[in-house]
Nucleic acid binder design. Structure first.
Lengths: 263, 263
DNA sequence: CGATTCCTTGAGGCATCTCAAGGCAAGTGG
DNA sequence: CCACTTGCCTTGAGATGCCTCAAGGAATCG
């Protein structure tokens, strides 16, 4: 669990002169500066847009920013101004109840958009913290709406992404409300597996970026229970677990564990 | 709990000739047909819009529809085409897991918008069922976006409503993930109380439209546990409960119960 | 090499679930 | 009008899954 002290520093935004670098063949620094040529364009904001609209996206002047492990991208209550697209690394989103209980509401990886909850009241309702060194695009929301006013397609994409977030939270509620510990962990791992696959990584073997406590917080259980569930899955021959390294041995079995309650 | 049979009938849409009725002084039937003169305009879609934009909303040709108690407004998987604004009555939204477990994800009352989750994949990710005889406005989403293309303000409103839904679900996740039975029920009742108040009803005395089982499903607990929590609150002198009629006797005490974990 | 963090595992306790019985109110049919 | 059904709620008693507390191991870091 990250302490308040760790989370209380916010890295400054560094605006990159994107146009200047755009034509550089490829050295080390900003590989793609435009949405249209980003390797994440099929996952990220441009997803679903036709050629012409993607090019209009290139009109966005957004900042790139590096976030170190444990640092906050934004805090609960910070004023809303940007949407954040993950370029690399993993984040957790958290909400805090008035009495200080913190709960993880989501994990975000490359190509996923964060900060959509800030739109409601102009301040972020959740905070985002990097679980490993990461890089994001900070998209000024005002610019995005301005751009969207020109053509409906872009606005549609943003709306659809928000809707997807709602749907995602629906299934999380289903999980939190009606599944037992092992079902929850199985669901979590299968979801992670699928997202890794979509990003070109192995669907069966990956490295967890989050601690047992963070997984537990996300799934509504204690870290010890998470640990025990991992051990059980390993004993059942569904997983091989070594600390944060997970290998899914029996994908079908894990799926069954996830649907156990079915007669 | 409603059976599948009850929920499987969907009432047809009746388009009302709104212009024809608009000028009728006020008899019994459609009292307001335009958003600009709707008594719910401060809660519903027009909320936050300036005069000129509200008038543009009047350009929307939407259907009014009556839904009988127990009937579905739409089902999970139905193709998405409309947003629904509640005019009167109460709805529950539910999602179903592949193995048939149903979970209530929300209750909606007058002025609230339903169906936003359908935008993500073009089909509704949840179903909506009337808990009492109800009336809704069915807003064609295509028309809404068309209208929104003209001015950014309207699109902003829709986006903000979606964002609000995300924020709402965040706090529900916090509830499901880290509160005990009594805290959950207290949070639920306080939320309900506040929404009743916002609609001009008493904040301290109201009629529950949902069964114990539905409350339990929403809060991630069994109906017996809901019932016991009600009884406990009554014994503690926080509530007076008679079946579905609830009176909040000690609002501050209930708030304390909700924040109990804060030593 | 000690301090720290994270994970695992065990033992016991407790909150909630499960199962069961009964009450109340509304609806139904004789 | 009354017996009967049905749906919903309440309450009790026992079972259980998860939490709590505690101890110890492994990896990382200064």
């Amino acid at each position: 669990m990250y302490t308040a002290a760790q989370a209380s520093s916010v890295t400054p935004v560094h605006f990159m002169p994107r146009n200047g670098f755009a034509e550089v063949p490829a050295a080390g620094a900003p590989l793609q500066a435009f949405c249209s040529s980003c390797h994440l364009k099929d996952l990220c904001l441009p997803c679903g847009l036709a050629g012409i609209d993607v090019e209009r996206l290139d009109g966005l002047k957004f900042a790139r920013r590096r976030i170190k492990e444990g640092q906050a991208l934004y805090h609960e209550g910070n004023s809303f101004g940007f949407l954040y697209a993950v370029r690399s690394g993993t984040f957790k989103s958290t909400v805090t109840s008035r009495d200080g209980r913190e709960q993880v509401t989501g994990f975000n990886m490359a190509g996923e958009l964060m900060g959509l909850d800030g739109l409601a009241h102009g301040t972020h309702a959740s905070g985002a913290t990097a679980l490993e060194d990461a890089e994001i695009c900070a998209i000024p929301y005002a610019q995005l709406t301005e751009l969207a006013a020109g053509g409906a397609a872009l606005q549609q994409v943003v709306s659809r992404l928000m809707s997807r977030e709602i749907v995602r939270e629906h299934s999380l509620m289903l999980l939190l409300g009606s599944m037992n510990a092992e079902e929850r962990l199985a669901a979590f791992l299968l979801n992670l597996s699928q997202r890794m696959k979509a990003r070109g990584y192995s669907a069966s073997e990956f490295h967890l970026r989050m601690s047992r406590a963070e997984i537990g917080s996300y799934l509504g259980m204690k870290l010890e229970t998470v640990s025990r569930a991992f051990s059980n899955f390993q004993q059942q021959g569904l997983l091989q677990v070594d600390k944060k390294h997970v290998r899914i041995v029996d994908h079908a079995g894990l799926t069954r564990a996830f649907e156990m309650r079915v007669q």
